[in-house]
Write a protein that binds this DNA or RNA. Structure first.
Lengths: 334, 334
DNA sequence: CGCACTGATCGAACCGGTTCGACGATCATC
DNA sequence: GATGATCGTCGAACCGGTTCGATCAGTGCG
């Protein structure tokens, strides 16, 4: 391995001079800088990350904490991971992906050992056990998903309540009076993933305000339960003219279910949902839907985190930020 | 931050004694060991990863290099990532996930800076640009996917040729004489992902041996091309009685396509494919298929890598290992 | 009883960077 | 021509671990 000492010797300067030439923290004459630069490329020097971390207490790595649950539709989470990783790299950070079953313990481990400069937590629950160790860690963290206690944390999430109102309003504007709402599975509510009730409760509330009938039912994430549940719900509410599907697994299975039942969209049933453009393309979903913007959310999360890391908790107060929903009309309502 | 020096002071011993107590590399009296242990838990000591990496030249991190291409079905790769991550953790390693567009450069960066102890490369191409820097890095690497030059590398992959023969044999045994084969998209062949032609060529070869007619066509990964292509192929070969689908995107879209055409499986068409149980469940695919075992592949890859890391290239010669395919009969052939 | 050996511990050096304080040279200022 | 900045560079200390060699007490053996 080639060290900074090798470079210094080759360039005929001291180690500290090489370091300063690299960091630019002190002025170095053009001539010396060039000799150093030449030596670096000739020898192929790259600073040792461990040594750097030791000296600077910075790792240039961010931790990404996620977990795949049986009650979730796995491909959906992937949409967040890639933009996060790409954005991190753009900003000079690598990503340590942590999928431990015990998230709290894993978080403690990687923060206390100084493996990461900051953390991004996905799929945050109402009473998330990772928050206590996160607060104790003294490292910046950005959450995607809304917990109960937001004190001292940066949070990013879609405004699910506004999204629900937007969809109900949209359907009401088209004259629908009876709507089926498929929510996330019961287990997701139980796990405390707040978007599930934020969306549902806002939808129910808005329907009430507008005098609409809204039937809320839990969806499922896995086959064959998904299809069975969708069929049962459709059987139960034959007079409903519109549907809001707030569940990735259900919406992915919906085209097949409707096709088998001979239900035409939008002639027989207006269908709306909530998914990203990317997700819709992958699963060829033809529904008018609120865009969930995972790409934007991921980018914003990393930016926010890196700002905090750089400014050491300086750039203003912690805050909860909800992205405003936007509707993509794919012609599945009438 | 609490250091090993703090622990030593609290326990009334030297720093080296604490280190030895922790590593067990020299004998320590029971009494001292307990005092140290008590001090560690009381103070909440965790070794600094950077310092450890510097002193031992080991990071306990493995790099996972992957890339999502437009011509691929993104959810499919996820199946490999999770088992990899879980297995790594079981064996005491964290995972640095690298998704850079320039994989070769990224590989150089993380190996030369000593950020990882070893690497796993997914989706390896025939002439993969990452192999040169990998060989130069002097760190162990395990590939999933078969490159042209396997010298000095450990490789794991499904035996796609055997899988192809298995499916052709299966259909021939049922009396089919004319078979449609949907291969991965042309772009995948062009990128040099060898499983595409390993499977196709073996299927063609076997069909020839058995005197069967086999129509090979490129599939697509994205909507709406997937559906259009499948329909075109089915239109072209109306006398074919069986189908082999070797393409994630196509097989995920197939149920809908067949349903829309009114084709019953297996009465009108016998359908076989190649996907994992997990994948099949997520997309509710009902086809008899070769199991791709991403979970097992992931586990084996990490195990192999960790063995190499531990034994410093000692545990026997490098080798290419093909997992034998197994057929899961889901009743979609007759 | 003296000697070799083992077990438990310590101190110092080392891993490869960064950073602080000091120092000589150069240059403008009065 | 002395004074004080400023610039460019160096040496030493430091970050927090690990490991080598040495020391010392206790033990077994001839």
């Amino acid at each position: 391995m080639v060290t900074i000492g090798d470079v210094a010797r080759a360039a005929g300067v001291s180690r500290s001079t090489v370091s300063y030439a690299l960091s630019g923290k002190r002025s170095i004459s053009d001539e010396t800088r060039q000799r150093i630069q030449e030596a670096i490329t000739r020898l192929g020097f790259t600073p040792h990350a461990g040594a750097q971390a030791l000296a600077t207490a910075q790792t240039k790595v961010i931790g990404l904490m996620l977990r795949f649950h049986d009650d979730e539709f796995a491909p959906a989470m992937l949409q967040y991971v890639l933009p996060l990783s790409d954005t991190a790299r753009e900003m000079g950070y690598d990503v340590l992906m942590v999928t431990d079953a015990d998230g709290a313990e894993a978080l403690r481990r990687i923060t206390k050992s100084g493996k990461v400069d900051g953390l991004i937590l996905l799929d945050v629950a109402h009473n998330d056990p990772r928050l206590e160790p996160l607060r104790a860690a003294g490292k910046p963290g950005v959450l995607v998903g809304l917990p109960q206690d937001t004190d001292g944390l940066d949070i990013l999430d879609l405004d699910f309540a506004a999204a629900a109102r937007m969809l109900v309003d949209h359907l009401q504007g088209l004259g629908h009076r009876e709507i089926i709402l498929v929510t996330p599975p019961l287990e997701v509510f139980k796990r405390g993933i707040s978007y599930s009730w934020r969306f549902r409760d806002a939808a129910i509330e808005r329907a009430r305000e507008l005098g609409l009938v809204l039937h809320a039912h839990y969806g499922e994430s896995r086959q064959p339960a998904v299809g069975e549940t969708l069929n049962a719900v459709l059987d139960e509410h034959t007079s409903a003219t519109a549907m809001i599907v707030h569940n990735d697994g259900s919406v992915a299975a919906l085209p097949m279910v409707l096709h088998e039942r001979g239900v035409r969209v939008p002639e027989d049933l207006s269908v709306t949902s909530l998914y990203s453009q990317e997700f819709g393309r992958t699963f060829s979903l033809p529904y008018t839907a609120v865009e969930t913007s995972p790409r934007e959310l991921g980018r914003l999360a990393v930016r926010q985190l890196v700002d905090r890391i750089r400014d050491g908790d300086g750039p203003g107060p912690h805050r909860v930020r909800f992205l405003p929903p936007t509707l993509t009309d794919r012609g599945s309502t009438t």
